[in-house]
Write a protein that binds this DNA or RNA. Structure first.
Lengths: 115, 115
DNA sequence: CAGTATCCGAATGGATACTG
DNA sequence: CAGTATCCATTCGGATACTG
């Protein structure tokens, strides 16, 4: 993902994936849809299994692709905030479809045998 | 993806991703939604930028997870067919949301400046 | 606080050759 | 045809230490 040479420009799904297929991108977007605004440390708390290094990298890519907006407050210690851009907002149907599937899956898993 | 230790069991999106986050899985599913049944070679033609090795691996994982069904015909040369299982079908809303986003993106890209 | 730099082992994935 | 096996370069990603 991200690289143009491994993306089929004619395939709609590929076009979508080039933006959200990063290892943790969909989850980051999901949390931003839920919370509107999140600081770096708040994202860390929501994704405890993701290293700081990876989180920073995924956020940088999302920002470079224009899905999220980073706001830095020049205070000490530094404070940053991340939120979805309009472009990022446009992925709502995709992320919410994932959420819906996952919620249904969890529900069924608790009711008895999964799938 | 795939590994339990990098999946937050409480996050719906993570639950979904553990099945479809493989590098080419969503695209494979997408083509199976479109075509119903596809042979290995037909999938290769639809994903020319994916190596045979990778395609086989992704298909094996999708089958192991129960999203697709593989049918082997004992003829020479061998013939195999892949199709979605009911479980695989359940991802339709997710895959179609990706398709819809991608189609809209492509349309806008051709109309003028992208995003 | 919010990162970045460096080191380094682990995993990824292409190319090629081989098989029933 | 539909894979699998092997080799090997590249990338990934964790741990740790450092910075404005």
């Amino acid at each position: 993902m991200r690289k143009i040479y491994d993306c089929d420009r004619g395939c709609p799904v590929q076009n979508t994936l080039q933006f959200i297929a990063g290892k943790w991108k969909s989850v980051i977007l999901y949390h931003l849809f839920k919370a509107e605004v999140l600081r770096f440390s708040e994202l860390q708390r929501r994704l405890p299994y993701v290293s700081k290094r990876m989180l920073a990298k995924q956020l940088a890519e999302l920002e470079a692709d224009g899905l999220i907006i980073k706001r830095i407050y020049p205070v000490i210690p530094v404070k940053t905030e991340y939120r979805l851009s309009d472009f990022g907002q446009s992925f709502q149907p995709v992320i919410f479809a994932m959420e819906a599937w996952g919620e249904n899956y969890i529900k069924k898993s608790y009711q008895g045998s999964s799938r």
